[in-house]
Design a protein around this nucleic acid. Sequence first.
DNA 1: TGGAAATTCTGTGGTACCATACTCTCGGTT
DNA 2: AACCGAGAGTATGGTACCACAGAATTTCCA
Lengths: 227, 227
Amino acid sequence: MHITARLAKETAREYALRILKDNIISLDLAPGSMVSENEISSQLGLSRTPIREALIELSRANIVEIYPQKGSRILLIDYALVEESRFLRLVLESAVVKVICEREGTLDISLLEENLKLQEFYLENPNPDKLLELDNQFHCELFNLANKMQCYHWMMDGMTVHFDRVRSMSLNTIKDIKIVNDHKALIAAISERNSQEAVSLMEKHLSRYKIDEQAIREKYPQYFSEV
Amino acid sequence: MHITARLAKETAREYALRILKDNIISLDLAPGSMVSENEISSQLGLSRTPIREALIELSRANIVEIYPQKGSRILLIDYALVEESRFLRLVLESAVVKVICEREGTLDISLLEENLKLQEFYLENPNPDKLLELDNQFHCELFNLANKMQCYHWMMDGMTVHFDRVRSMSLNTIKDIKIVNDHKALIAAISERNSQEAVSLMEKHLSRYKIDEQAIREKYPQYFSEV
DNA sequence: TGGAAATTCTGTGGTACCATACTCTCGGTT
DNA sequence: AACCGAGAGTATGGTACCACAGAATTTCCA
């Protein structure tokens, strides 16, 4: 497991959650593998309670399953679940860009543009992790512009892990280019308040996350659950 | 606080969460009031840990706020939040009925019809609590028919409390009639696979939860946060 | 040698207690 | 009389330990 230092003002529980999420996304905690509260707690230099609470939260998002008195397992990738989370994102984010386009008053899209510039930079100076982070920030800012931050937190907090884990399995050089272009087109549509175009761009954009299923399945068959 | 017996097979944490939710919805734990882990734990005959974990979960859903080293508070009703949860439901459930209508193959709506019959029964023999429960079950079954149960759990688990708390403040005799009729019309549209009609019915249906804001605000001004 | 019972081991669920930080009160000083 | 600071009180955050259940291993008997 890859462990980074604890941040200032971060509670033990938040720290444990962050480290666990990072390692699940990076596949250092492999799908299907068992994890032990004791082992993690000694690795992080904490007691079991913060670990336990982090695992409870992950189990609510169906990332981890806790078998009482037996142990906890990093769940295999259930593609039906990934698809459901994509469905939820698609539906919700489409509605969000619609709200943005139809909102009255001025619209400050400078944060989106700034984010886009950084994406273009990390495309030329390749850094997939940064791109992933910027991608998530981009979508977060959309929710913010629509005044729907609570929706973002209610869902995305628990859901992005499913997404990011799959994404980190795919070779992403080619796709990243398309994603950045999608974002660019989306900003254009939003600034023109073209609601219909923006929604259709969002649908196309989020569908990109789907295509790799077959390739990933063949590359990491042991990480997928049946069905 | 109103306390019922602990169910079989229910962990202490689940028990604490259930009791807390029930009391928040029924307003026995008043919006704005402070709660103490110690007090609750002695009332429920548990130690602090399960209570603490239940409060952490409620704080994730913005029902409770935990002030470290100070205490925990049942949050006032933030109508912007209620509206956001309505937005989320609206967007998602509209998409869900669309999926149902456009699904291929046969469609087993017997559970919906059965649920509707019970709703009609409890309308004639008034029982608001039962109606609320049936209402939630009805919507849950819609997600089930669309094969989107995970979406249901991701959101609704944390969100319905916001809804139910507001709903329990409104006099609901008149509204219940309309709601049951809405459900009836929705079943009809679904069985005819009339996607457009079903979505528009769902929009009208969920908008009913909005109308009472002014009345409730006047009746319980101290339960609302500003803005 | 094979198999079942008993025991040990290991895991989470929950309890009791300590650490730490914030609040409020009370007393002394100016 | 007003204000500041020390200390008690009380809240959650975290630790250490016990309770209990399930799995694996060992032991004992046929």
